[in-house]
Design a protein around this nucleic acid. Structure first.
Length: 326
DNA sequence: GAACCGTGGCT
DNA sequence: TAGCCAAGGTT
């Protein structure tokens, strides 16, 4: 082993210090690895595990998922966030069932044609299932490569991505793709973390340019974001016979989930009874109680408390409603 | 190319 | 506390 080969170094490191007991690591079948990869997009391992176990238990095969009731898919996804993933997941299963006869592909060129699978997720699936090294560029790999090679200063986001993809291709080993991919994730998640990286235990310490110059915390460059405060959205609670009225949200946040109906203008028979602040988006929901039958409720579906518990309702709203109606 | 999409954890 | 970030993809 060449000492200057970072890929070999982290593969060896992974065998001793990496994670080996994650639920989806116990198989090399494409379907469960795909489900895990989609759930893991922008979502931490700890959050994903219970959702993954529940999902695989209910839909053990891609054909089962393809035939699944759309509503049930969203029920299992509710609380995970980024709900377009659930929509794409269901669509992808149907694409695999139709175009690939229910056999999940493992080639990059096939994978990237499927809904919800981009270049990085395709690489992750192929690495995991075939053991053939396939480039990945997720948050972990970006952070590791950016620091190792000191890439990022003064680059636009797209230029940075382009350079990092090239680096990801160059640095990957010729064998042990599965271990290597897992090694990059584990290193990024447990050692080469965003704040206060643990360089003293990093297998790449002596090759890392950022570490040599003490610039770890400056790489990769921070994303700039300018959150736009939004006007509060007024939502109304209609209660009748112990049931609450919800409607399907069809756009933007919480798309395809059940939410309280909105009101442009608060009716005179409504009174404010609470609000939710949606942290990332600064979305504010003003929730008011409407006295039925003075108002005519919109078309929707009436949920009992028990139905509400298992329904595809966003977590903050579900929490509020269960507390309010209890 | 940039805006958009959720939630939980961390400091 | 309030901002920042995480196993990204789509439009």
């Amino acid at each position: 082993m060449k000492k200057s080969d970072p890929a070999r170094a982290i593969i060896e490191w992974q065998k001793q210090f990496g994670r080996h007991d994650l639920p989806w690591q116990q198989t090399t079948e494409p379907y469960p690895r795909w489900v895990a990869e989609i759930m893991l997009q922008q979502t931490q391992v700890k959050t994903v595990i219970p959702y993954y176990l529940k999902f695989m238990s209910r839909f053990p095969t891609v054909k089962a998922l393809a035939k699944a009731d759309r509503e049930e898919v969203f029920q299992l996804w509710a609380g995970l966030g980024y709900y377009s993933r659930a929509e794409n997941l269901h669509r992808c299963a149907q694409e695999v069932a139709e175009r690939y006869n229910g056999v999940f592909p493992t080639e990059i060129s096939d994978l990237v044609t499927l809904s919800g699978i981009g270049r990085s997720t395709a690489g992750a699936i192929r690495s995991a299932c075939t053991d053939i090294p396939s480039p990945i560029l997720d948050g972990n790999v970006k952070r590791v490569l950016s620091r190792l090679l000191l890439i990022g200063d003064g680059l636009s986001a797209s230029a940075l991505d382009k350079k990092l993809w090239l680096a990801a291709e160059e640095i990957q080993p010729k064998e042990e793709g599965r271990a290597y991919a897992q090694a990059m994730m584990d290193l990024g998640a447990t050692v080469c973390v965003r704040n206060r990286p643990r360089c003293e235990v990093c297998p790449l310490q002596k090759m890392c340019r950022a570490c040599a110059e003490g610039l770890q915390e400056s790489y990769p460059p921070k994303k700039k974001r300018a959150p736009v405060p939004e006007e509060p959205i007024h939502m109304l609670i209609y209660v009748r016979d112990g049931k609450v009225l919800l409607i399907k949200r069809e756009s933007r946040y919480w798309k395809n989930l059940w939410v309280l109906p909105e009101a442009q203008v608060l009716p005179s028979d409504a009174r404010e009874c609470g609000f939710i602040t949606h942290r990332l988006t600064h979305l504010k929901l003003m929730i008011s109680l409407s006295t039925v039958p003075l108002s005519s409720p919109p078309e929707g579906r009436w949920f009992t408390l028990e139905e509400l518990t298992n329904a595809a309702v966003a977590t903050p709203l579900k929490t509020f409603l269960l507390e309010f109606l209890a």
